[in-house]
Each structure stands twice: as structure tokens, then as C-alpha cells.
Design a protein around this nucleic acid. Structure first.
Lengths: 203, 203
DNA sequence: GCAAATTAATGATTTATTCAAG
DNA sequence: CTTGAATAAATCATTAATTTGC
């Protein structure tokens, strides 16, 4: 399926399984290099681009939240109904609206996960540096997808693919610094896994 | 100002003026190649990256809308007040809320402009093709910012930097097709303009 | 069984909101 | 307070499931 010139990417079963495993392992907003590496590894199972990975995580996260929201609001509605049943006619004019609205998480918009089991795969090659490498938005992510070469005099400081990663750079669980938690080592380098490892199949 | 390692880009006066002129000329969501070319030309006036251009247009458009919204809602409020003054106390329980909420434009999310005066600058080199070149999202845009080279087996069909642009491809004002309006030729190639051309200076 | 028609999922884009530098 | 940067939400659009009539 999905013939050659299909307009939109549709993931292979293996690709989907790997993506979901990564998601389950706690990855929500992969950095540029993570996306790059995921893309590289998944391209073994079929045509894929960085933006596909990027969008996949974005959509999956959003729809997860959405699902949770719906579930919670339904629960709340049920609870309120139960409360009304309990209180019967004591307070007949409880507002009962404003159930489905949730504000943002104010700080570090996505608390994501404390990372259950980061599988070894992405080795996060480089840039233990500070600010100008906050590779997390669509922009910088795409930077990796195509190539790291520049065209004009755009002075990139240090792409740093040579320096080994300084893992001890995490300020352990200090939220609000600037997304210091960079996942690494997501998968073993043997990408010959097929499907006898993923326990819970999707849906 | 803005020494070498400044954390965020702050546009030069010339850059800002050019950007605003482009905006006034109707550009709202520049394509990847447009962004690439704008970046190239603006880099003559100072350090700039593609994502700066991208974000600039995004923010400018959003805040323009925001401003308009505020203005309109204020006008509406005034009108309603005037109406109330006219009707005096005939209808004392007019809702009077729901003034500041605006839905989306349902179709072709950004009607943008019919392009007043597209200055000749971006020559939009290529891809008079159909779907697989809808260069409008952060992803594809960034693709240009760094380089057009690929890394893996990502089969790009035809980057087409050679074919001349077919301008008569516009289906004049047929909204809802699929964003066929591709701006081109924004500026003359003589980028030595300073500021004697921009009529209405910003604020 | 099997396409056409409909509906549900989900990939891709755009817009709104938020954070934070200056 | 303004605005660059980033993320989340809403929306669009295409593909896959599925239903339906034959």
C-alpha cells in the first residue's frame, strides 16, 4: 500500500511500532538530533522523512492529551451527576458547566515523563553546549532532516558532531531551566528487530 | 547592541523595513524558497537565519490579526453602547457578551491579500509542479534554510530549480483549490536600497 | 465477494497561546 | 511593554476502515 508517489506518508507497521515504543518510553517532543536519528533508523523499514517523525510525535501527543481530556471530563460529569444524586435536591442550581476546559501547564509546558525505560538507540551526537542549540522546534529539527551544510554566510557556531556527549548536564529535575532533559540512547544499534518484542500492540 | 552570542535575533532597521514592506505587499506565509531568499538578501544587513524570517512573519501576522480583533471588538462594543443609548431602556437585558470571539475563516485559512504590489525580489526558482512541493510549513521552510541536499534515500522528485516559473497558474481568485498563489518577484536585485522608498514607517 | 459510499483515523498546516529576552 | 521563539490547539485534507447495496 502507499504507492510510490503517495502524497502523504503512511507509516509501516514496524515504523509505527517503533514510534509507539519510543512514545511509551517517554519521548514526547524529540529534539532535532533525536528526530534525525529516529528518521535514519526508521528509514530502514520504508520511506520516511524527518518531518514525518516530527508530526507524528506532535499529533500523537496532542491526541493523547485530547483523549485524556475527554475521559476526564466524562468522569467529572459522572462524578457531578453522582454528587447531584447524593445531594438530591439540596443544591438545585449547581453550575455544572466548565467541565471540559483545561488550562495549560504553566511551566515547562510538557512535563512529559520521567522516562521509564529509555531504549538505547539515539546516541545524541553532539552539542553539549548551551543556548544556541535548543534543538526542539520545527525549525531546528528540520535543520537536521536535510543537511547541516549552510548556503550563505550564516555563521553557525559549532555543530559539534565530534565532541562526545556530556551526559551529566541535566540539572536533575530542575524544571523551568530550559528543557535540559535530552533523551539519549533509545535503541540498541541492532535494528533487525521485527515484532516479537513489542508487547502491547496498538489498539 | 546584540553582541556576537546574543541569545535571540533582533532585526536591524533595514531588515525590519524590508520585512514590513514585504508584509505590506501581501506576503503572510512565505514559502520555503521565499524564506530562503528573503534570508539571503536580509543577511546583507546583518546576521539572520531562516527561522527568524519564518517567525517574524508568523508573529507579525498573528499580532496584526490580534490588533484588528481588539479594534473591532472595541468598535462593536461602542456600537452596542450607542445602540443601547438609542434604544435607551427599551431592551434592558441585551446579552452584550460574545463580542470578542471570532471564528476562523473556514476556507483557505489565510485569505491574506490579493497582493497589491509584489516587489521584484524573490524569483521563486522552480517547482511549477503540483502537490509534493507545498512548501509552506515550518518543516519544508527549514529545509531551505540549511540546504537542499538530502542525506538518506529520501526520494525527492524534482526540486526543479531550472524550470522557469509558470505564472499563469493562479486560477484567479478560486479560493479552496490548494493555495496555488505563489508569490514571486518581490524585489529588484539591487539590494542597496536604504530607506528612501518605504513610505509609511512602522508606528 | 466487491466496489461505491460513508465514516473514522491520522498526516500535515495554520492559528492561538505562552514563555522569556531586552 | 514589545517581540522573538516555542509549543499547544484547532483545523484542513487525505488515506484507511467500515458499511451498504448489489
Amino acid at each position: 500500500m502507499s504507492p510510490a508517489g503517495s502524497s502523504r506518508w503512511s507509516p509501516t507497521t514496524e515504523q509505527l511500532m517503533i514510534l509507539e515504543e519510543l512514545y511509551r518510553s517517554g519521548i514526547r517532543t524529540p529534539s532535532a538530533s533525536q528526530i534525525q536519528q529516529i528518521t535514519t533508523h526508521l528509514s530502514f523499514y520504508g520511506r520516511i522523512e524527518g518531518k514525518n517523525v516530527f508530526y507524528w510525535f506532535q499529533n500523537h501527543k496532542a491526541r493523547d492529551r485530547q483523549k485524556l481530556r475527554r475521559k476526564l471530563s466524562k468522569q467529572l460529569q459522572l462524578q457531578q451527576q453522582q454528587l447531584q444524586v447524593h445531594h438530591c435536591q439540596l443544591n438545585p442550581d449547581i453550575p455544572n458547566h466548565y467541565v471540559g476546559t483545561f488550562g495549560y501547564t504553566p511551566c515547562s509546558s510538557t512535563p512529559d515523563f520521567p522516562f521509564y525505560n529509555p531504549p538505547t538507540f539515539l546516541y545524541q551526537g553532539g552539542s553539549s553546549n548551551t543556548s544556541e542549540q535548543a534543538l526542539n522546534c520545527a525549525w531546528n529539527v528540520h535543520n537536521l532532516q536535510s543537511n547541516l551544510a549552510e548556503k550563505e554566510e550564516v555563521t553557525f557556531y559549532n555543530n559539534g558532531w565530534s565532541t562526545p556527549v556530556d551526559v551529566n548536564n541535566q540539572e536533575s529535575s530542575s524544571c523551568c531551566t530550559s528543557r535540559p532533559l535530552k533523551t539519549l540512547d533509545l535503541f540498541p544499534l541492532t535494528t533487525t528487530r521485527t515484532n516479537e518484542d513489542c508487547t502491547t500492540p496498538p489498539k
